[in-house]
Structures are given as C-alpha cells and as structure tokens.
Amino acid sequence: MNWILNNVSTITDATWAHVWLALPAIVLSFVVAIPVAWFASRFRRSRFTLLLVAGLIYAIPSLPLFIVLPLILGTSVRSLVNVVAALGLYGVALMVRYAADALDAVSTDALLAATAMGYGPLRRFFGVQLPLAGPALLAGLRVVAVSTVSLVPVSALLGVNSLGMLLTDGFQRGILAEVASGIGATVVVAVAVDLGLVGLGRLLMPWERAAARRDARRTTVEDEQAVAA
C-alpha cells in the first residue's frame, strides 16, 4: 500500500498514457473496419477472403508485430504511432467480422423501403444501414475495446509507457504492489472505456433505449404469466 501511496503520480501518468494508446487504436479499428465490412457485405464473394485475412492478422503474435511494423511504417519501435498502428491492426481484424455480420443483419425491408423512397446508395448506408446495424456494431466494438486495453501492456516490453510499465518494473524490482496496481488500473480502464461506449451508444441510438425498456417489460410480463401458470 505504501508503494501505491508514494507513487500515485506514476500510476496516474501510466494510466493516462495507457488510455491515450488505447483510445486512438479503438477509434482506428472502428473507422477502418466499417468500409472493409461494407465491402465484404456488399460484394459477397469477397467476404470469405476478407474475413480469412482478418482472422490471420489476429493470429500474428503481438511482440513480433510491434517489432516488424516499424520496418513497414518507417517509424521507430518506441513511437506511439507504431504502437497505435499495431493495436489498431488487431482491432480491425476483430472488428471486421462483427461489422460485416452487423451490416448483413439489417432488415432488408428497411433497406428496400429506403431505396424506394429515394435514398441514394451513400445516404442509405449512413442514414439507414449503419444506424440500424448500430447495436450489433456496439456489441462488437465493446469486445474490441476491452481486448485493445488489455493488449496495450505488451508495448511496455518495448519501453513504451503504459500501465504495462508497472508490470515489467514491478516484476524486475520485485514490488508486488506495483504489479497489482498495474493489473487493477488496467481493469479499471477497461471497465471505464466499456461504460463510456455503452453511454455513447445510448446517446446515439435513442430508439434502442426505448426498445430495451420494452423488451425488459415484455420479459417481466411473460415471466409473471409463466409463474402464474
């Protein structure tokens, strides 16, 4: 406990560094995955290949990727760009499948209605298909977000500051409290990001909140009926 109290600013700095690596990577994952998923969903024959490639990318071990990527990007190994790019790559690989499934699952009735009313293709995508895929996209993004937050510490092995530094440093110096605070703070960041995404979803998809209330109510009524019967 003493170690924690004496090193509050170290933990805070590492936490913020962690957040600033994770958030851009999460945003990058989403922004890149959407057009790829759109392509996979629009051109059915490309779907298998694209998802296969995404799956293979996700299978690359992370430490080698952190080291190889700079050769392609022309950055230094410790550059934040390198770390964000690597994290983003894993995020995209994970997100593409969720996003392709989410876009595919949008009701064809709604899409047909939109076309029949005179939506152009671009407007239909952003005005109808994307928002209606929203809940499923959010579900996928939450997984990507938590996965990204827990992948960030690997970059500490390269010497990039994040909560991972508390783990490597704590192990080397044998300070258990430092290791524990690194793990604890990572969990806190993951939960905070997740809650943030849920809040963002509520804000952007007001129709879903109403529908969720309906489903909850319906389930309750059905349960009561079942119990009564």
Binding site: D109, A110, L112, A113, A116, M117, G118, L132, G134, W207
Partner: peptide, 15 residues
C-alpha cells in the same frame, strides 16, 4: 422521390 411508395408491414424505418 417523386412517387409515393407504401409497402406491406409498413417498411417504416425503426430508428
């Protein structure tokens, strides 16, 4: 846009 279209199950946009 210049032609009204009404479909079965209303085809309303759920959002």
């Amino acid at each position: 846009r210049s032609i009204g279209y009404v479909m079965q199950n209303s085809g309303l946009l759920p959002h």
